[in-house]
């Protein structure tokens, strides 16, 4: 009886995922295997043209560029989020600090992108200062290149990395660091060999939470990027709304979804290894342990 009740409770969630996630995904899969309509849309005729078109060198180049930008932005995000999460976890006024991390979320993300243009733009705040200090200089063009895209992406997704890192570091037993020091580890070693392995699940979550959305970024490269910042998200949008090639847009979306899903699975699968050396700090495991009545 109890077993069946559990299923019924999850039914709304399952139906929700079926209707709003799996069904649209199936439509995308189907569209990617159809012939493109002359004026957008698809013809009901099987075709592999979209997948052949994906092998186009310019699309492969954009895919490579997107991967490179995503990896660099994710690494930078985690490097910044790690000390942030650590300091929040160790601070006495966690609530205020967490609040400060979340506050930017209340502002529309487009407004936050435009704020960067106001700060770093050719006529922005920093360039006003440069021209005031050095009259007659043209200023520096910070924006409209790949590094500007990386910068703003790191800014946008930083909270997604800080929050999971904080929640795992918060559960970490800090006396272990003292124990490591007592046993002869340097301060640096105590972090790399005791703290990092114990917060691995947080690192993995933070990495996925930043890498996956960055890989599909659209608005940031569009507004902050320049001629060299065309990413996969932009190609998908353009194929759909400008060049009228829906199957190609679907095929690229599929490939992106599939490769990120495989990535998530790979990361999830290789986690159990070495687990016996790690004091369990996985929030989901803790939650399921506490929730089992």
């Amino acid at each position: 009886m109890k077993q069946r009740a559990g299923f019924l409770y999850t039914l709304p969630q399952i139906l929700w995922l079926l209707v709003f996630f799996l069904a649209p995904l199936c439509i995308i899969i189907a569209y990617s295997f159809l012939k493109k309509g002359l004026y957008g849309g698809v013809e009901p005729q099987f075709s592999l043209e979209a997948y052949q078109a994906m092998a186009n060198p310019s699309i492969l180049m954009v895919a490579w560029r997107t991967l490179r930008i995503s990896v660099i932005a994710t690494i930078l995000t985690i490097l910044i989020a790690l000390p942030c999460g650590y300091s929040i976890a160790r601070s006495s006024n966690q609530a205020i600090r967490l609040f400060l991390v979340i506050v930017p979320f209340w502002t529309n993300f487009l407004v936050r992108i435009y704020a960067w243009i106001a700060i770093l733009g050719n006529e922005g705040f920093i360039n006003d200062i440069i021209r005031w200090v050095a009259p007659g200089s043209a200023g520096i063009q910070f924006l409209y290149n790949q590094w500007a895209v990386v910068l703003v992406l790191v800014y946008m997704y930083l909270p997604y990395a800080i929050l999971p890192l904080f929640s795992t570091i918060d559960k970490f037993d800090f006396t272990l660091l003292d124990a490591a020091r007592d046993l002869g580890a340097t301060r640096f070693q105590s972090y790399t060999r005791v703290l990092l392995p114990n917060i691995r699940s947080g690192l993995v979550t933070a990495g996925l939470f930043t890498f996956v959305p960055i890989f599909g970024a659209y608005a940031v490269p569009l507004l902050i990027g320049g001629k060299d910042s065309y990413m996969l998200g932009n190609i998908i949008a353009d194929q759909l709304t400008k060049t009228r090639n829906w199957p190609l847009a679907s095929a690229i979306s599929m490939t992106v979804t599939l490769s990120t899903t495989i990535l998530v699975f790979l990361v999830a699968l290789r986690k159990p290894k070495e687990q016996k050396w790690v004091f369990d700090a996985d929030p989901s495991a803790a939650m399921s342990a506490a929730g089992g009545r």
């Binding site: 186009n56 310019s58 699309i59 180049m61 001629k227 060299d228 065309y230 060049t243």
Partner: peptide, 8 residues
């Protein structure tokens, strides 16, 4: 256009 947009 793709050649132009993709760039280097």
């Amino acid at each position: 256009w793709q050649v132009i947009r993709v760039g280097k």
